[in-house]
Amino acid sequence: MSEAFEIVAFIISAFIAIAGALGMTTTMSMFRSGIFLMASFIGVAGLFILLTADLIGVLQIMMYIGGFLVMIVFMVMVMHDPGGAMMAGMDMAFVERWFSKGLVPREPPHSGHSGDMHGAHGQEHRAHRRDSHPMPQGKAGDHRSHSVHHDEHAGDDHQSMQDMDNSGHAGHAAHHGNDKNGMDMGGMDMSMVTPVRPAAAWLAGAIGVVLVSMLLLRPTWRVVNAMPDPDSARRVGHLLMEKYMVAFEGAGFLILIGIFGAVLLARPSSHPDDPSRAARVAVAEKPEPIADDGLVPLPVPDKQTEHKEHHRSDGHGA
């Protein structure tokens, strides 16, 4: 690896890592935050590979990119405004404005009448979208699925999809966010960052300056000139299986317990006070039919023939 190539690769990787992290924290769109964070991880992985820790670099890309795809899906499902279209018009610092470039601002949802209007519009819009797909079953199934999906997930999903393909319809997008719960978001501060943002920026800047100046002022570390084994993954594997066996097993056990904990936490609780229980009970009582699959219903063995057969067997018995 020649010197110039190493320097260029370092500069590119460091730039991607830092700019990605900066964009992650300053953009108003959570979706963009996730993408920027992936870029940052890729930059750090490049630095790892430059440091001849190829195994760690590849592991970084695999673990984090996979994890962050999941996280982005979560944001799209759960977040209030993952596309950031609502705060795109807010007052922003220069960096924030730059990283939020291209977000279309739109009206925050007002409570009451206009919210209802938005909702109606959104339904109409979605009906239009749905109709554009070839669907054998017409309006009836359409209507039912509307009533099923008329919640935050559908609204936010819809919204983020629109942001993704930049269709310019963001102005018409219905924000269903909290219509269902009757929460009034009109008076709240809709921004993604807390009011302590300037103080946090100063603090983080101070931390950065102190760390960097300490690094620059410190004379030198005792740098060894030896080159690591180019096949370092093999060495790491041997260490994992010999010296650090307990740590390895512990990490595996930690993952197992973590999975148990995550499943336990995310399960709908059976505690009677838990609001999620109502949804579960409702589902258990009246299972939702699987709609809109467009299949011809199978000829079910109806009650009458069964009855007849029953009778016949009865006659035989007699």
Partner: peptide, 21 residues
């Protein structure tokens, strides 16, 4: 580079409002 990343991370943890962030 590590120090700058650390500072950005501290800023994010303090200033962001959503749990995902």
């Amino acid at each position: 580079v590590g120090a700058i990343l650390f500072a950005i991370g501290v800023y994010t943890v303090i200033a962001q409002r959503a749990a995902v962030m």
